[in-house]
């Protein structure tokens, strides 16, 4: 180290200045490149939302004439009324039955997504902890097994799953959409991969010496260290559960009170030839809003520039 320092001081002042200048130019160039890339990606990420919001203010006829428009129109209130069936105008279903009920939809979607996410996060971390921290005979086999389960294509197993649910008459309840996430192989895999370098076994050892029980150590020491991993996985789990449509449609439809938001949106498409497109886009926008809120609430873990997980404060 000292030789290195010496070399630095040996450098002539002129050269030092020159280097600094060069560095500055390079940095500016790098910044131009970085910001250009970032701005392009930002536009690519945001434009779809703009199209969606813009279409929520347009009429069916306008949308069918030009399916994408950057310029919003003036029919937002009309679309809202049609969506909420407060007005019999336009192509809205002429019935009094309300398909789109955002409050109920939000409640159901939230119970399912939050429930599934919490269970998946907690039990996946716990399972990963079992694999990383403890030495037990079947550990390797167990991990290999989890990996294998993760690799099975899900489409055909879904058939077996819903048939099973129908057979035990759990259809029409939210449980079959929440409870299975206790066993989330991909998330266990992530937690294990993250935990391996992040969690030092010495800390656990010292906790044990201090007389902490195993559950206590897990809840009070391991979980805080896993926070960034849990936050990112929570976002992914919540989003995918929220957007899930196929299984909820099959399992929940028989109970009219248990429709999720995406199911309500799907029903708006109903008869392809009688869709109120503006109201549909408004519904899609509304159904995404809660996701935004959850995402932004959890995103501080993504934004933070410091290692939240580190034990050092």
């Amino acid at each position: 180290m000292s030789t290195y320092d010496n070399q630095l001081t040996e450098m002539s002042e002129e050269q030092f200045r020159h280097n600094q200048k060069e560095k500055k130019v390079l940095k500016t160039l790098a910044h131009i490149g970085i910001y250009t890339v970032c701005i392009i990606f930002t536009l690519l990420s945001l434009i779809p939302f703009w199209f969606m919001i813009s279409n929520a203010t347009r009429t069916t006829s306008q949308i069918y004439g030009k399916s994408l428009s950057l310029v919003p129109s003036t029919h937002l209130v009309e679309n809202y009324k049609a969506l909420m069936k407060t007005d019999e105008k336009g192509q809205a279903s002429s019935s009094g039955t309300q398909n789109f009920d955002p409050v109920t939809g939000f409640r159901n979607s939230f119970i399912v997504s939050a429930g599934a996410t919490v269970l998946a996060i907690y039990f996946s971390t716990l399972t990963a902890y079992a694999i990383v921290v403890y030495d037990w005979k079947l550990k390797r086999a167990f991990f290999t097994f989890i990996m294998a389960v993760m690799m099975i294509p899900t489409q055909v197993t879904a058939i077996g799953f819903y048939l099973m649910v129908f057979r035990v008459h759990l259809n029409g309840t939210l449980w079959p959409l929440i409870l299975p996430s206790i066993a989330s192989p991909a998330m266990v895999f992530f937690m294990k991969q993250y935990m391996q370098p992040a969690l030092s076994l010495e800390i656990i050892q010292s906790a044990r010496i201090d007389g902490a029980g195993e559950f206590y150590t897990f809840n009070k020491i391991a979980l805080p260290i896993m926070k960034p991993a849990m936050a990112t996985q929570a976002i992914f789990a919540f989003v995918s559960s929220w957007n899930n449509l196929f299984l909820p449609s099959i399992l929940l439809s028989s109970n009219a009170k248990l429709k999720t938001l995406p199911m309500m949106v799907a029903l708006l498409k109903g008869d392809i030839y009688k869709v109120n497109m503006g109201a549909l886009y408004l519904a899609i926008t509304i159904s995404i809003l809660p996701l935004f809120i959850v995402y932004f609430a959890l995103s501080k873990y993504i934004i933070a520039g410091v290692a939240l997980g580190s034990v050092k404060g």
């Binding site: 398909n99 058939i159 819903y162 048939l163 129908f166 057979r167 008459h169 259809n171 029409g172 449509l245 196929f246 449609s249 099959i250 399992l251 439809s253 028989s254 009219a256 199911m263 799907a266 029903l267 498409k269 109903g270």
Partner: peptide, 27 residues
């Protein structure tokens, strides 16, 4: 009359209907 509406858009109507027909019972 207890109504069950499943959208056809995502292909869920037929599997759901088939499962319900096969499942039998009060539902």
């Amino acid at each position: 009359v207890k109504t069950t509406i499943v959208a056809t858009t995502d292909g869920a109507y037929q599997p759901a209907l088939d499962a319900a027909l096969q499942g039998g019972g009060a539902d």
